[in-house]
Amino acid sequence: MGRIVIELLLRVAGALVAFLTLPLLVGQLEHKAMAHMQGRLGPMYAGGFHGWAQLVADGVKFVQKEEIVPAAADKTVFRLAPAAGLLPYLLVFLLLPLGPGLVGQALDMGLFVVLAIVGVGVVGMLMASWSSANKYSLLGGLRGAAQLLGYELPFVLSAASVAMAAGTLSLPGIVEAWRPWWLLWQAPAAVVFFVSGLAEIRRPPFDMPIADSELVFGYLTEYTGLRFALFLLAEYAGIVVVSALTTVLFLGGWKGPFADHQLGWLWTLVKVFAVSFVVIWVRVAYPRLREDQLQRVCWLVLVPVALAQLVLTAVVKVVL
């Protein structure tokens, strides 16, 4: 009994540590990579060496800021929204396999649970947008709702393709079943999953709900201080989650060129950061999609491709 409790605590602590460090690393990577892609240097002072502590300094600054709740806001909901936006990602961290046997909690229906939980993140955004009592916030929230409603579909369909190929919904199971030639076989699904994942976490070029040039800052307009920081953290945690899901489902998770069993965690992390880099890269390279373009990409490109991939997966599965 005691051993089980200790093991459980260890697993939860591991997921928590990953949750608190990986998003910060991705955030720092974004600072630096984006700066260099634009011919700048990015943060250079915080922490002494190439601004490595910039996000820590930002966190300290946010803690010191005044916590403002607008007079007309729905105060309870307004206060709870950041938590609702952040917690789903924390839960997902518990379910993502890092290496063989290295997982917070392996569930037989892990994929299903993960996709369901990621979808809950939307609720936090809707809570924030509605309770702010601000037109810009509300517009951002409605845009977000429309976007997530649309992109949830290709997101789930492309994930279903892999689940079908692997014959299991368990995330470690999918990695076990994965073979390198799946990279080709599941390539369209991987692209669809990645793109709709970007839209799911409202990253540029799918950041219509935030769109700072037209909506002030969308559903984040009224937030200040620590709650704003939590929303930002949720964004970076979202990048890690989408990258990790792409890695686990389409890039073979802990499977690397050698020593899968000893170095599995390393291969997973390398892949996660590589995919995160692509997320940042895409942000720097592409302008924001207009609302109609956004819906067009979803319904006229991603959904048909995802459906075609399902057919392809089914045919190959039956033939083999």
Binding site: Q38, G39, R40
Partner: peptide
């Protein structure tokens, strides 16, 4: 963007 990243910053 990738090419700019490999060059020296201004």
């Amino acid at each position: 963007t990738l090419r700019t990243m490999t060059r020296r910053a201004h």
